[in-house]
Amino acid sequence: MTPDLTLPYDGILPEFSSRPVWCGRGSAVIGAVRLGSRAWIGDGGVIRADGQPVTLGERFWLGHRSTVHIATYSHGTVAGDRVTVGRNSVVHACTVGSDVVIEDDVVILDGASVGDHAVIEAGATVFPRAQLAGGFVYAGSPAKSVRPITPAEVDERAERLREAAGDPVQAAAGDPPEVEATVFVASTARLRGRVSLGAGSSVLFSCDLHAEVGPIVVGADTNIQDNTVIRTRGEGVVIGRDTTIGHNVRVSDSRIGARALIGIGARVAPGTVIADDVMLAAGATTDPGQLLEGGYLWGGRPARILGPLDSTKRAMMVRIVEGYCEHGRAYRKAEAALS
């Protein structure tokens, strides 16, 4: 089987050692990806190499709605053989050894390294540049070693995780929404209800935006990255302009200001108000009704102020927005060439 969507980036198409054993609905493999033999990609799984390469070994297993990505200007992603990734996890710009189990809702961040025969337990966050030695179980945020583990136990955990994959979780993509010419909505994304997208905005692969009750309003040049879910059951979600919503974020009825960055795997609870010029760290959560004051980096579970938003972080946030405007134009062109 082949993914639902295979796209080139900068003229480079993915390379498959052999056809994957399984590719679920809404799955996408993009750009300079090398995928080993006997791979398995779950529903909504996204492997995206748009700026740096992604190299994944034999029997790589990517669970439903999980994402593999790179850091455009600095790091690719490499994984060895027999790596198993659970549901709703993100493997981002890092190096993962062989015979590694990454359970559900895990985030591994830029420059991190995970050794052979390791297990990252559900809900853990591996911080940037962390070096996790092989042969241990890791848990928490930041992920820390819990106990040693044998290769036989790693194999057993991998088998249990694959068996627990269960039924698909990705709904089929709906009809393409009517948007203006500068907006990009990936063909594997799903938009339902009253969704308004500002000029130059982008909704990436396998996102699910469902305005069940209130509307979802997205500002100009804002990017919503792969496998993010935004769902309203009350007043709705409003996101300001020039904002980045990272991979695998979950957003309920809330307000997110302009020039904000919501980090990979974060959770924004109902009633949250995030001011302009806020960075919410990867894996962070907010409490219902929480107010995040502008001008700060927030992180933790629940989120608290970690420090001021300095000029380096602000410049990085601007670069991400500019980069995703370019990505949106490139992906619109690439998807148009398929039709």
Rank of each mutant, 00 (worst) to 15 (best):
G111Q: 02
A49H: 02
L161I: 02
Q52E: 13
I149K: 13
I108C: 04
D50W: 03
A124L: 03
D110F: 06
G51P: 02
V146H: 05
A133M: 06
G80A: 05
T95R: 15
R65K: 11
V137S: 12
R87N: 05
V154K: 07
R162V: 10
D50N: 07
Q131H: 10
V91Q: 02
T77Y: 01
A79H: 05
P151H: 08
R87G: 02
S141A: 12
H92Y: 04
T77P: 06
D50K: 10
T72V: 12
A139W: 02
P148R: 14
T67Q: 00
D116T: 01
H117T: 10
R87K: 09
V85A: 06
E156G: 05
V54I: 14
T125Y: 01
V68K: 05
V137K: 14
V137E: 15
D155C: 08
V54P: 00
V68N: 01
V85Y: 00
G123A: 00
F136H: 14
S89F: 00
G135F: 08
R65E: 14
H69P: 00
R147W: 02
S141P: 05
W61D: 05
A130N: 04
V90L: 08
S145P: 12
S98N: 07
V101M: 14
R160I: 08
G80E: 00
P148N: 08
A152H: 12
P128A: 01
A49K: 04
A49C: 00
G115P: 01
T95N: 12
N88F: 12
R65H: 09
V83Q: 05
S145I: 02
V106K: 09
V101H: 05
I108V: 11
H75Q: 14
G57C: 06
A93V: 00
D105C: 03
D99M: 03
V91G: 08
R129K: 15
P128G: 08
L161R: 08
E103T: 03
P142F: 05
H64S: 15
G51F: 02
D99V: 00
V90Q: 11
